[in-house]
Computed example of a mutant assay.
Amino acid sequence: MTLKIATWNINSVRLRIETVARFVAQHQPDVLCLQETKCMDGQFPLADVRRMGFEHVAIHGQKGYHGVAVFSRHGLVDIDRRAFCGKNDARHIAVTLADGPGAGVRIHNFYVPAGGDEPDPAVNEKFAHKLGFLDEMQAWDALRVGAGTAKTVLVGDLNIAPLEHDVWSSKQLTKVVSHTPLERRRLTEVANAGGWVDMMRALTPEPQKLYTWWSYRAADWAAADRGRRLDHVWLSPALAPAMRQVEILREARGWDRPSDHVPVIATLSP
């Protein structure tokens, strides 16, 4: 039996709930993790989510900004929402699957701060916030999975493309937030300190290009193809042998009223 976990920065769940339904109908994930839902908990379109077949929902919302959610066809327990950097931003939610093929699997869903435009923490508070967020991720014991036997997944929009071929041109983007040497190093340090396995790159090594995001600013995103891999799937070493397939649903970027991110679907046999 397999477990399909999808992650997607939806850029407003209420605005794009029909797009979510289209994706779910076509690909039938067992678990769907969303970021940037931009919706308070009391306004979340739960009826629509349940019509898609997800009876179990965990949300962490915020008016107009941020927001993360987990939809599941299986029971959820041990739901946790962590605040980072002394802020009340809704950027993290964690759940454990109570039953089904992934029973016992712990899932962390993250939306790391984008960091603004200027990659200098001394003059850009948003960039300083991003670096501080990464510091707290690295120091958090719950994300140190390397030496244990726990089966854990970390997914989400981490807003950093860490490798050379995670962007269309590493040389041209070296001073652009999301691919600066400092961010790339810091995300790699977070992953290494936790003992995480980058599932996407384990199955599709460099130098193959991998993108999950294409800017709205491009007149023709597909022709320009100036993408970045900002969305990630990490596995604990105990779960890594279960990895089977990762699919980046590029065509979703061309759907009506698209997000600038596309879904990433990870298939496991836990």
Results as ranks from 00 to 15, higher is better:
L3A: 06
I5R: 09
A6V: 10
W8C: 05
V13P: 11
R16K: 12
I17M: 12
T19E: 10
T19A: 15
A21Y: 05
F23D: 03
F23I: 06
Q26M: 15
H27L: 10
D30W: 01
D30H: 10
V31Y: 03
Q35S: 15
Q35A: 13
E36G: 04
K38P: 06
C39N: 12
C39Q: 13
M40D: 15
G42N: 05
P45T: 01
D48F: 07
D48V: 00
R50F: 03
R50A: 05
R51I: 03
H56T: 15
I59W: 09
H60N: 15
G61V: 06
G64A: 04
G67T: 11
D78G: 14
R81Q: 11
R81A: 11
R82A: 15
R82I: 15
A83R: 11
A83I: 02
G86M: 13
D89V: 00
R91I: 05
R91G: 02
I93M: 08
A94K: 12
V95C: 09
T96A: 13
D99M: 08
P101F: 14
P101Q: 09
P101K: 12
V105S: 10
R106N: 10
H108Q: 13
A114W: 05
A114T: 06
G116D: 11
D120H: 03
V123K: 07
N124C: 08
N124I: 02
E125Y: 00
K126I: 05
A128T: 04
A128M: 02
K130Y: 02
G132C: 07
G132S: 07
M137W: 00
W140P: 00
A142F: 07
R144F: 00
G146D: 01
A150I: 01
T152H: 07
V153P: 00
L154V: 13
P162Q: 04
P162G: 05
L163S: 06
E164F: 03
K175M: 00
L182H: 04
L182I: 09
E183H: 00
L187G: 01
T188F: 00
T188P: 04
V190W: 01
A191H: 04
A193M: 04
A193D: 02
M199Y: 08
A202M: 10
L203P: 05
E206A: 12
E206I: 05
Q208K: 14
Q208G: 03
L210K: 04
Y211G: 03
T212H: 11
W213L: 03
Y216L: 07
Y216W: 09
R217P: 05
W221P: 10
A222H: 15
D225F: 04
R226N: 14
R228A: 14
R229H: 12
R229E: 13
L230K: 13
H232R: 07
V233K: 04
W234M: 15
W234R: 14
S236H: 13
A238P: 02
P241W: 12
A242C: 08
M243E: 08
M243F: 09
V246F: 13
E247A: 08
E247D: 12
R250Y: 12
E251P: 04
E251L: 06
A252K: 04
R253A: 13
G254Y: 01
W255P: 05
D256K: 15
D256A: 15
D256W: 12
P258T: 14
P258W: 11
H261S: 02
H261V: 05
I265V: 14
A266F: 01
T267V: 07
T267D: 00
L268R: 07
L268M: 08
S269W: 00
